[in-house]
Amino acid sequence: MTPVISFTGVGLTYPGPPPVRALRDASVTVQPGEYVTVVGPSGSGKSTFLNVAGLLDRPTEGVYELDGVDVSRLRERQRAALRGQRIGFVFQSFHLLQYRTTTENVALARLYAGVPRRQRAMTAVEALDRVGLAHRRDALPLVLSGGERQRVAIARALAQRPSLLLCDEPTGNLDSATAENLLELLDNLCADGLTLVVITHDPQVAARGQRTLTIRDGVLHE
């Protein structure tokens, strides 16, 4: 089976001054349907790893194949298209548009793929159903709880129909009960066959994954 993520000697050095080697010589594969967690102290390079995996940053060394395609050779517009169609993102701080309803926020996921408005709205409603927010379709993010907001963000990622869901500290802004709910949702998504990479510094969250990668000073260990 083609791995979803395949890093071979991938590194990223932020040009200084002084230059920061945020990720060095990382070689790792993530198979379809896997639930991988990434832990490490603050500043160790977790977000850098996620940015490279999510095509938000280009690695300065090594080869990255996403679904078997060497993405470092692709042009920017193709990387943008891949980002929109293969990769879903979930962030610690939700990143919802606060003046748009939850449905509009979720529907945004397919806008740049050129999906017609009506179809996007239908997909959005389905995705909201899937995360248990069918009753909050017309709410504005401002009136939602933190847990609900994060579910909207996950619904938005799901609406992209990604082959890979990248989560950077998804429970970072949630209390433990709400976090537990959200982790159950992630478990369900994994059970449905979605590939998950979840960054965290909470050992309990890390334990939910089938595999845990540790990163320290930019160096990745199994």
């Binding site: 999510g54 938000l56 920017e76 943008a80 298209a81 980002r83 929109g84 990143h95 740049y112």
Partner: peptide, 16 residues
Amino acid sequence: TNEIGLRRCLGARPVH
């Protein structure tokens, strides 16, 4: 800026 970053994650190109 956040919104711009998010839109880029959702597949927006700079021209969009």
